[in-house]
Write a protein that binds this DNA or RNA. Structure first.
Length: 498
RNA sequence: GGCGACGUGGCCGAGUGGUUAGGCAGAGGUCUGCAAAACCUCGUACAGCGGUUCGAUUCCGCUCGUCGCCUCCA
């Protein structure tokens, strides 16, 4: 079938993806802890797994994508205390902001976006089972996971428990049997959100909610667990320990981790203080620029967030958009008649229609036809090989060049309309898989108000009279309104600037 | 100190035991009133040192450098 290989952090190899249930793929991705606005780094796993999911669906898999929000946590409580509001309010505010910000990327939503606070019962059950089986113990109203009890501990991160640095860093005020042990349930303190439990009032520890929710929605031995590289240890390691202790079997079978977004070569994170908020980004750039920025490098590589790199991503978007413009122009002229700059197309359109078959049969269309096949094949080869989006983009740029070459020549002679339509649809389709929606790009006069069209008119009149000062002034005014004028064989066109 | 990743032409960034990545920027040209877009031409890069090989950027070792994790973190 449509086999795909992915790099598995657990085995440190690329492996064929073999779903637990034939034709179905279950994915759990660690979403944000909602104690502030998400930054660009947080958006990378969101974007990557959205694109990955799109591709799997394109291949014909039935995908269930689960992406959680951790809405009860120390950091949320800290922030609430600092601002003098309830932690519920902090969680609600930033959950909503997260949904809103990521929603603007136009990639849709995961199938399920579960919240920790809506799964307290499941979490308590997990804790109880861990205590009953001896993998956890209660002390002072808190419950801790007994790390040494789990023989597989460290298998994901390659850490050995006896060499962990924090072995030596005993924390004050903790009644743990071993410094390695971690809290799965925390006894309530005053002014903190808490729930009734067999150990008194309390709240979940960090890692337990993901174990509970992934098992609930995807079951044992589910396919793929993902998130940022920085979650490998301890978060994902601990999830494995909890889940496998309880179920006695494999937790997730494939682990996929995205590399970090950096600034000045240093990881973007709240603690470093070098974050760039997603909503701030979206105020300045087209969302597709972020998607292309991410996709221009491999998801496992670190990626430098810099003005130059973003400009480059913006240029990529422009190149794709321009190709569409060119295609639409040629297709339009084929529909309405040959371009002669005077718009009397009806009589001439027959000529083009008549000419087209001759061109279509000629050797001129062969390079594009071949490029179409080659690009698509290359695109899929790259995507199937551990989701190599940079390579996939290269394939699409190859197609863009072929289209431009063909359009360049054909505009003068008439074009194979079917072939060009096919090329346009294919490019739109493949870019669409990557989450870059370009097919609905506005073209020509659609949606423009009369004032702008009037300026275009004025400029044309001035150009005919060779009053170039006036023509350029009209162009400047259009530019000020956010549009760029391009003189094409089909006449002047407006392109909205991104 | 432990674990892991990486070092590709001006920049970003794929990839491979021997045949073109791609994008951006730059130079020249075509087209254009100008511009924009597009097309054509131009740069023979793979950290350093050894080794394996007929041949290594691609495999192995060492050195140097960078980054991530070992504490909250996407």
């Amino acid at each position: 079938m449509n086999d795909i290989r992915i790099y598995n952090t657990l085995t440190r190899r690329k492996e064929d993806l073999i779903p637990r249930d034939r034709g179905k793929v279950g994915i759990y991705v660690c979403g944000p802890t909602v104690y502030g606005y998400v930054h660009v780094g947080n958006a990378r796993p969101y974007v990557f797994f959205a694109v990955f999911t799109r591709y799997l669906r394109y291949l014909g898999y039935e995908v269930k994508l689960v992406e959680n929000l951790t809405d009860v946590d120390d950091k949320i409580i800290d922030r609430a205390n600092k601002e003098g509001v309830s932690s519920e309010e902090i969680a609600r505010t930033y959950s909503e902001a997260y949904i809103e910000d990521t929603g603007r990327l136009g990639l849709g939503r995961p199938d399920i976006e579960p919240r920790a606070t809506e799964h307290i019962d499941e979490i308590i059950n997990l804790c109880r089972e861990l205590v009953e089986s001896g993998y956890a113990y209660e002390t002072g109203g808190s419950v801790y996971y007994r790390v040494r009890e789990f023989s597989g501990y460290g298998k994901l991160s390659g850490q050995k428990t006896d060499q962990m640095q924090h072995c030596e860093l005993a924390r004050e005020g903790e009644a743990k049997e071993s410094p390695l042990d971690f809290a799965i349930w925390k006894a309530a303190k005053p002014c903190e959100p808490s729930w009734e439990s067999p150990w008194g009032r309390g709240r979940p520890g960090w890692h337990i909610e993901c174990t509970a929710m992934s098992l609930q929605y995807l079951g044992e031995k589910f396919d793929i667990h993902g998130g940022g590289r920085d979650l490998v240890f301890p978060h994902h390691e601990n999830e494995i320990a909890q889940a496998e202790a309880v179920t006695g079997t494999t937790f997730a079978r494939y682990w996929m981790h995205n590399g970090m977004i950096t600034r000045k070569e240093e990881k973007m994170s709240k603690s470093v203080g070098n974050i760039f908020l997603l909503r701030e980004f979206l105020g300045k750039y087209d969302p597709r620029v972020l998607i292309l920025f991410f996709l221009s490098s491999h998801y496992r590589s670190p990626l430098e967030f810099s003005g130059a790199n973003l400009e480059e991503a913006a240029s990529m978007l422009e190149r794709f958009r321009n190709c569409f413009w060119k295609l639409e122009g040629v297709l339009e002229s084929a529909r309405t008649g040959p371009a002669n700059g005077h718009g009397d197309g009806a009589a001439a359109s027959t000529a083009v229609t008549a000419a087209a078959p001759a061109i279509a049969d000629s050797s001129e269309s062969r390079p594009l036809r071949e490029a179409l096949e080659r690009s698509e094949e290359q695109f899929h080869d790259e995507m199937r090989d551990d989701v190599n989006t940079a390579g996939a983009l290269a394939a699409l740029f190859g197609l863009v060049r072929s289209i431009n070459e063909y359009a360049e020549e054909s505009s003068a002679r008439g074009a194979d309309v079917d072939l060009l339509s096919e090329a346009r649809d294919k490019l739109a389709e493949l870019l669409g898989i990557l989450g870059v929606d370009i097919s609905r790009e506005e073209y020509s006069g659609a949606g423009l108000d009369d004032e702008l069209l009037d300026l275009v008119e004025q400029r044309e009149r001035a150009r005919k009279e060779k009053d170039y000062a006036a023509a350029d002034e009209a162009r400047d005014r259009l530019a000020a309104a956010g549009y760029e004028v391009r003189d094409t064989p089909q006449g002047p066109k407006l392109v909205r600037k991104t």
